[in-house]
Design a protein around this nucleic acid. Sequence first.
DNA 1: AGGGCAAAAAGTGCATGCAGTTGCCTCCAG
DNA 2: CTGGAGGCAACTGCATGCACTTTTTGCCCT
Lengths: 223, 223
Amino acid sequence: MSGKRSLIRSGTTVDQMVRAISDRIVTGFLRPGEKLDETSLAARFDVSRTPVREALGQLSAIGLVERRPNRGAIVAVVTQEHLASMFESMAELEAICARFSAERMTSGERRSLEIEHQASARLVQLAAEEDYEYFNTEFHTRLYRGAHNAHIYEMTVMTRSRLAPFRRAQFMLPGRLAKSWQEHDAIVTAIMRGDGNAAGKAAKDHVSIVSEASAVFAAPQHQ
Amino acid sequence: MSGKRSLIRSGTTVDQMVRAISDRIVTGFLRPGEKLDETSLAARFDVSRTPVREALGQLSAIGLVERRPNRGAIVAVVTQEHLASMFESMAELEAICARFSAERMTSGERRSLEIEHQASARLVQLAAEEDYEYFNTEFHTRLYRGAHNAHIYEMTVMTRSRLAPFRRAQFMLPGRLAKSWQEHDAIVTAIMRGDGNAAGKAAKDHVSIVSEASAVFAAPQHQ
DNA sequence: AGGGCAAAAAGTGCATGCAGTTGCCTCCAG
DNA sequence: CTGGAGGCAACTGCATGCACTTTTTGCCCT
């Protein structure tokens, strides 16, 4: 191997590449439709093309990139229609997670969900978008874990990743923070009551509203 | 390239390998826990190790195989617990598909669903397990498509693939065919009525019963 | 000047080779 | 006979090279 692997943490080179590239996609540093040149990526990360190719193949298998045979890879471009289907799926998945959480969370999980949720009220007051966004991710992750179902967890997290590039700007909308908190509150309340159906419905409504706020960022059309 | 690609159809070599290997996993020709030796697979399909490696990477990304760094790949071994979580997910996914199908199927889709379903009654009479199994797959695929949601379709089909190795023997149980048909009938009836909730509930019950019939095939424990 | 074709440039797809790691097998000590 | 250390064989991980495909560029002909 030529030089030391520079920037990224541990695991095989391929794993590092998968993380590095998917991070850049999920955080929007690489935008949908952008070309992913094997040679440039290899140079950029100081590895050979082989691990880059494998990484692109895996990312393509999970849908984050799109590969056209002999024509290179691009960050997955998503049609309005497919985006809508992902948001709808997300609403259903969140509803399932919330319902199961209401039924299955341990008392410890319930307690920390409630505590964190109440703590985040302060962030709304301060209009601390960045911090609230971090909390928001945590909150939803708690719901996914609380469902105590590994496969639903996987599907939900994966769907969230694929949606991430399209919901970045959602909190820019005025009053969004307070509204989001209230919606979370409805979910938490239902979960604390152990009311699965109410929790599910509240979660579904929550995502539906986010979805409307984000739909504008979709690609107008698919190539 | 040394010789002509022999057995499999079109696409890049990597795609062919992905299909070939995942077919063998899904159909049970390769059993959970079985070692997937890169060199042997390469020889077996008359390609070099590179496409085999890429295929294994992709299959690992979607969960059909498990890769241990420097220690080779095996067909994914699934714990009882994870299997249960997949069956539970499947029940929820089928419920969603049935609910959406009841609400969204075109009249053409409804008609052919009903026709095929009625036609399959004959297979039950004849106790034609093989043919019924084929019909059964078709039936469920119609439900998934009828939901008119591409992402849910993907997740459902993928989950079904991962469950496939564990439900092969379900129809061996006596009386299973007739029971399955009746359950399908409940789903179809609800869909024809446009009753999403009833369709969802019927679909969920259907999968739950299959799941109980299949649980015995899980690996007793994870390594 | 514009359209089209051809050749070159760029880039992907796969094979092969080498280095590093794992696991097994043997052999020796107790 | 058992346990462990050393060495060897097998295999994985990555780099590199070559063949083939796509794309671009530049030139010719109309």
